[in-house]
């Protein structure tokens, strides 16, 4: 659960107001989508990498995400390289298949765009504690029942994860070979009992939860407000101004036709 990935540190991004961070996130992603040019995208990508450094996200987390994304990235670049129509040919393969330079460039643009999105949202979640996100949702006037569902989900996900581990451990201890390779059918057959246990315990818990909510005065119609308030500081105003300026310049350049060509 990404919202639970917050790591407390004392960096510039940690100190920023959530709204400032949201503005930054939107600016970077919008810019990444506006331009097609590999040069422009590379600049945005480098900027994202700098932000990653500033926010001191642990390297192993970045490597972990990168590893998950590697296959889709290679696929995107490869697919575009082979299917780009009428591009400049780099290598001609048999059966009329050509590897095109334009295709590679387009593929790289897509790849960088994906990485920018993943890394910026990583920075957002790693530097923002979940209650700040809740406060943000409240400020964005999201209705309380929805915020409440999120609150409960956040509370219960670690619990469910722990439960799932216990159940799977119990299954393994009863001789179920979970470590071996299985067909999808076998996997499903093995996980059905696990899910049943989770479900039954979940139902029992939900009844207790309903009682717990009652004794603590829960009412979906209450005018709920978060307990912590976040204030905007000078650096937030400056940062938002900077981001808005960059965004406006970006949009202006886009309208003028800059960065629309691949190279």
């Amino acid at each position: 659960m990404v919202l639970l990935d917050y790591i407390p540190k004392n960096t510039f991004f940690h100190k920023l107001n959530t709204i400032s961070k949201l503005v930054w996130l939107i600016t970077v992603i919008v810019l990444a989508f506006l331009f097609n040019s590999i040069m422009y995208i590379s600049i945005i990508f480098v900027f994202t990498l700098i932000c990653l450094g500033v926010s001191r996200i642990p390297l192993d987390k970045i490597v972990q995400y990168f590893r998950i994304l590697l296959l889709p990235l290679v696929f995107i670049v490869g697919y575009e390289a082979l299917t780009y129509p009428n591009g400049r040919v780099v290598v001609a393969l048999p059966y009329g298949i050509n590897v095109s330079l334009d295709g590679i460039l387009l593929g790289l643009t897509f790849a960088f765009r994906l990485l920018v999105m993943v890394f910026t949202s990583t920075i957002f979640t790693y530097t923002t504690p979940y209650n700040r996100v809740i406060t943000l949702l409240f400020k964005l006037r999201i209705p309380y029942p929805i915020i409440f569902i999120l609150l409960i989900a956040l509370r219960y996900i670690p619990l469910l994860q722990r439960e799932l581990t216990i159940i799977i451990d119990a299954q393994k201890s009863r001789g179920v070979e979970l470590e071996k390779f299985h067909s999808l059918k076998q996997v499903l057959k093995m996980y059905i009992p696990v899910m049943m246990v989770v479900l039954i315990n979940g139902l029992r818990r939900s009844q207790q939860l309903a009682m717990a909510l009652t004794i603590r005065g829960f009412n979906p119609k209450t005018k709920w407000k978060p307990i912590d308030e976040e204030c905007m500081k000078l650096q937030d105003y400056l940062f938002i101004t900077l981001m808005m300026t960059i965004l406006i310049i970006g949009v202006y350049l886009y309208i003028q036709g800059y960065g629309s060509r691949l190279w």
Partner: peptide
């Protein structure tokens, strides 16, 4: 099962 009645993710919440 007191865990079931803890609603916030942090103590203060």
């Amino acid at each position: 099962e007191y865990e079931n009645q803890i609603i916030g993710s942090t103590v203060k919440d």
